[in-house]
Amino acid sequence: MKPMFKWTALALALCLPLSANAHRAWMLPSATVLSGEEPWITVDAAVSNDIFYFEHFPLQIEGVGEPLVMPGQNPAAKAPAHPRAQLQIFRPDGSLAQPQFGNTGRYRSTFDVQLNQKGTWKLAIANHGLLARYKENGEMKRWSGQAADFAKHVPKDAEQLQVTETSSRMEVFVTSGQPSEHVLQPTNNGLELVANTHPNDLFAGEAAKFTFLLDGKPAADLKVTVIAAGIRYRDELNDMQLTTDKDGAVSITWPQAGMYWLEAISSQPIKNPASPASQKRASYTATLEVLAP
């Protein structure tokens, strides 16, 4: 076993959902449209190749279970170089709730949320930071972290230094009763989805319109990928490849009911004297449920 290598891969997968090894981080809610007084949902969170299958690593979340320690691994010696993901659970009024009954297993984390307020809830994991690659003493090094810590960790005179600003956001929407809008407001930081069609009002055969923003501005010509669940039981991935128009909008007509995974990635050069980065990479992913009419 080479735990160090795996932990690095996992951390990378968290920062960059579509990294070279194609591991994707995702959350899968048990339901997104709920009735009743204070219904519960349970959520799976994992990092895997195939969407919605548990086959690689749990998505480790702060406040959800204990950090994963493999059998035979010394808890003290494991590599906690990368903190667990920070999950935010927004109630319809914007206040924060805590995950309950959290557990982290070999392949997935699970947690529950009691929807004790009517309206639309948002579960979000967002990261912003820097990724640096450079050569030191003839060896390629990689560092990722917050921009404020960059100077502390990366030598000033590092050779072949390449710095990328990274930003990722993963979201799930869940509605108890009547859908509401408050939690859909963008933060104007990184790549975000503005739901022209409410994300908990999606039906097979109908078109949904979403607009993407990069740092609050319409993200034109953005590649958006949509993949339906159930990959294991079909031969083709059947992914929908869409491109946003000049206003950052796409229209998605859902071919059938089910869970979908949506991903958008933007990568572009930047020139900002205040940042050591020459490239900015932002990703947005969401798990969406489409119902049968």
Binding site: S35, G36, E37, G177, A292
Partner: peptide, 22 residues
């Protein structure tokens, strides 16, 4: 008890969408 019967109202999904949820 606790109006738990309302939990399955959403299974009438057209009605839930058109009216029930509000």
């Amino acid at each position: 008890k606790n109006n738990e019967g309302e939990k399955w109202l959403k299974d009438m999904r057209q009605w839930w969408r058109r009216s029930g949820r509000s």
